[in-house]
Design a protein around this nucleic acid. Sequence first.
RNA 1: GGUCCUGUAGCUCAACUGGAUAGAGCAACUGCCUUCUAAGCAGUAGGUUUCAGGUUCGAGUCCUGACAGGAUCACCA
Length: 596
Amino acid sequence: MELQDKILNTLERAFAELFDHQVQSQDLALQPTRKEFEGTFTFVVFPFLKFTKLNPEASGNKLGEYLVAHCDEVKSFNVVKGFLNLSVNESSWMNVFQQLYLNEKLGQLPSNGQKVMVEYSSPNTNKPLHLGHLRNNFLGFAVSQILEANGYEVIKANLVNDRGIHICKSMVAYKHFGNDETPDSSGLKGDHLAGKYYVIFDKAYKKQIAELQAEGQTEEEAKKNAPLILEAQEMLRLWEAEDKDVVALWKKMNSWVYEGFDVTYKKMGVDFDKFYYESDTYLLGKNIVEEGLEKGVFFKKENGSVWVDLSEEGLDEKLVLRGDGTSVYITQDMGTADLKYNDFKINKSVYVVGNEQDYHFDVLFKIMRKLGRPYGDGLYHLSYGMVDLPTGKMKSREGTVVDADDLIQEMIDTAESHTKELGKIDGFSIEEANALYETLGLGALKYFLLKVDPKKRMLFNPQESIEFQGNTGPFIQYSHARIASILRKASQIGVDYSTSGFEGLEQLDPAERDLIVMLNDFEKKLKLAADEFSPAVIAQYMFDLAKEYNRFYAELPIFNESDQKVQSFRIALSYLTAKTIKTGMRLLGINVPDRM
RNA sequence: GGUCCUGUAGCUCAACUGGAUAGAGCAACUGCCUUCUAAGCAGUAGGUUUCAGGUUCGAGUCCUGACAGGAUCACCA
């Protein structure tokens, strides 16, 4: 970063001195030079021709000459059309490397004094987690890590949807068909047990609908009149009235689900600082409706229902409270937004929720801003696309889902067979081997889901499964293991790869320089990932870095290098690469092994 | 129908926010293990960036309009 800034500052002076023109420093930018040209940074002169009053080539040459004369870091330049390509001194690259190498806080920017809450996961307690939840959880966790690395204090929150008609459906089915089955008696994980009854409910409900239709009711009537749905609705009413038996069953089944979720969360490697439960929050927000009416942000219709008019903001009128005074979804969300703020005095609040709720959050955020909330401008919906199967959308009621637990296990099994095939576990204990399979399987899965731009929907093909070669988690993990192996050997034979080991070294191989350039980008990528709330930025960078290292690894010898300083430097360079990979992968929630 | 998102190699994805001849991986083909881990490296082939206009020195990127896919538009959650 500092290197670029020096060059840009000199450019700013160049414009002042050569062309008598003050440029805004934020208007100046360097970009990486394309591979086919000589140089590392490129300055595009086209936008500035009106100030130089020269043709592109002449402008580039003048600026280039000035830079070489006034900026120690710039060694030489060439101009192609309007592109000024700059080459940097090798000693400057060594300085860049040393700064990175000695940086104790690599990948951790200083505190910015801001607090942000990241709400993610937010499961329903009537069924186990599936592939879509995996994307959500990995995204939420990774974004939390990335924000933390950017100096935020992060509160990871999970708003559990533990009430409502869908929960009652599982409960009704369990009551009828459960025979007091428990996770222990059935050998099923608690969340899977609840999910089983959710599916049973749906089947029985559909059967009742068909029967009623056979008796002459329309489909719509049948859906409303089926005894099971009436029972579920009655159960919801009883739950809200705090009926003893219903609440007891609800608590029992939910506790099973939580036990199941705990296992899955642990396996996924995600965690939370704060749990919110909708059973506690579903009545919130009515005070905000009052407030909105007083402030004139909301208005009441004849039947008593309360609305907000967002037509000035390009949206419609939106209901915020029913005519009978009961809440709708957004009422509760308004209340919860305030609750989060009051609990933690957060500056920003991120909601990791699928893109089918884009409109909802658009409305919610506009309302909170209209109400003048201090955190209004810090609200952000991290909207992500659905994960589709080749057969189309997943439907949990129909059982056409890729179960999270199953998929994770499948990935671990694949990692195991793959590793054994390659014969790479010599000298591993059984525990170490199992830990490795888990690291690799989860690494592959997480990377697969995180490398794609969150807002894009993605296709998951269970047949083709997930690769272990190329642009994958294991490729990056492998690169790390290779370096770890080098470092083991280095300490074994006693190579000094502290800075004193390669002091005064000035010659750089292009492969070494390219690697330093890449390593120097880490902080920039870290900031970009936070600005865009996109772990994909880090994932992509991790791949590019590992790729660059593998090129260096293949091209240049290390232990066969006779020059001690060069050898020591190459080990140091390897060390920094491993450290950067480890740090970056940790941001994605992916562990890296020392051997594989 | 209104609104929003997406459309890039056969497939999965990039493209540093408007810059040079659009890059990777998978799949196919060719080389490289007697050197530090071949889950690797190097190379070949693969493109009218869905289409048509526009903005300008310059457009995959911005604007307009089509086309295709998806989401959403409940006194559901």
